[in-house]
C-alpha cells in the first residue's frame, strides 16, 4: 500500500485537531504502592511491601503491579490474564474495595496516600495476591450453572422472546472474578455461605424460560447457608466490576424461593 506521504494534506478541515491531537505528553506522576505480601515458603506472617514508581495518566493499578514485578521485584505474585476486565483473574482489594486491577485507573485514586493492594478477603491466601478460588468454584458448581431442559431437543434453536431474555440479562454478565463473594461480610466469617456469585449464576438459569431445573436450584439455595444468609449490605453490588445489580438478583431469588413454597 503506497499512499502519498503528504501527511499535511489529509486533515484539511480538522485544523482544531492540531492543538488537541498530535499526542501531547501524557502526564506522569509518582505512585506509592503498598502491597500485602505473603510467602509461606519463607514466613507464616504476611507483611506490607512498599514501592514508589513513576506512572502515567493512562496507567491502571495492574500496570503499576507489572512495573514492580518486571522491573523491581520479580517475586511479586498476582493473577492476571486478559488485563482488560473480561477474564476476571485480577480481582483484588484496592484501597479497601474489591476491584479488578485492570479496570482501576491510577489517576482516579487519591495518590497523595499510598495505594493499598491486598488479596480478596475470605478465601485462603496462597501467595501474595493469589487466593485459593476452589471453595468459590465449589459453590458455583453446586447451583448447576448449565441449562437443563427435559423436553426433546428441537431441530432448530429454542426460541425465546426478547422479554424472556431480558428477564435474566443482568446476571449473564458475571465473569466469576469473586469480587462480590469476597466483599460479603457474611462470607468473611462463614465460608460455607454460597455467596453472591453462586446466587447470581443460579439466577441466570432460574429465570431463563428455556431452563427446567429452576426448582432444583431454588431447593439448593433454600439451604441454611443459602439466600437467607444475605443481609443486603450491598457490598456485592458495589464490588461487581460488570455493574451487575447483585443484591437485587439475590432478592429476586429469595422471592422465587418464597413463592415456590407458598
Amino acid at each position: 500500500m503506497s499512499t502519498p506521504t503528504k501527511e499535511a494534506a489529509e486533515p484539511a478541515s480538522k485544523i482544531d485537531m492540531k492543538e488537541s491531537g498530535g499526542g501531547g505528553e501524557v502526564p506522569s506522576f509518582d505512585v506509592t504502592l503498598q502491597v500485602r505480601r505473603y510467602d509461606p515458603e519463607f514466613s507464616d506472617e504476611a507483611r506490607w511491601d512498599e514501592w514508589t514508581v513513576t506512572m502515567y495518566g493512562t496507567d491502571r493499578v495492574l500496570d503499576a503491579l507489572h512495573k514492580v514485578k518486571w522491573e523491581i521485584d520479580g517475586s511479586l505474585t498476582f493473577r492476571r490474564s486478559c488485563a482488560h476486565g473480561v477474564c476476571g483473574s485480577d480481582a483484588m482489594r484496592i484501597n479497601g474495595r474489591n476491584r479488578l486491577a485492570c479496570k482501576v485507573l491510577l489517576k482516579d485514586l487519591d495518590l497523595s496516600k499510598p495505594v493499598l493492594v491486598e488479596p480478596i478477603k475470605g478465601l485462603p491466601v496462597e501467595k501474595d495476591l493469589i487466593v485459593d478460588m476452589e471453595p468459590f468454584f465449589q459453590s458455583y458448581r453446586e447451583i448447576m450453572p448449565f441449562m437443563v431442559n427435559n423436553s426433546p431437543a428441537p431441530t432448530g434453536e429454542r426460541i425465546q422472546s426478547p422479554e424472556e431474555r431480558e428477564r435474566f440479562d443482568d446476571t449473564t454478565k458475571c465473569i466469576l472474578c469473586a469480587a462480590c463473594t469476597s466483599s460479603c461480610p457474611v462470607f468473611w466469617t462463614d465460608g460455607q455461605y454460597f455467596g453472591p456469585a453462586a446466587i447470581v449464576n443460579a439466577h441466570r438459569f432460574i429465570f431463563d424460560s428455556r431452563d427446567d431445573a429452576g426448582d432444583m436450584r431454588l431447593e439448593v439455595l433454600n439451604d441454611k447457608e443459602g439466600v437467607w444468609r444475605c443481609r443486603t449490605t450491598f457490598n456485592c453490588t458495589d464490588a461487581c466490576p460488570r455493574g451487575i445489580e447483585v443484591t437485587k438478583a439475590i432478592q429476586e431469588v429469595k422471592r422465587a424461593v418464597l413463592s415456590r413454597s407458598m
Partner: peptide, 23 residues
C-alpha cells in the same frame, strides 16, 4: 484440598426454617 471450614455438611438443610424466620 478445600479447607473443611468451606464445606457445607449434608446436615445443613434447614427445612425452610431460615425462610420462615426471614418472612
Amino acid at each position: 484440598r478445600i479447607d473443611p471450614k468451606y464445606l457445607r455438611s449434608g446436615s445443613s438443610k434447614s427445612g425452610s426454617f431460615e425462610m420462615a424466620a426471614w418472612v
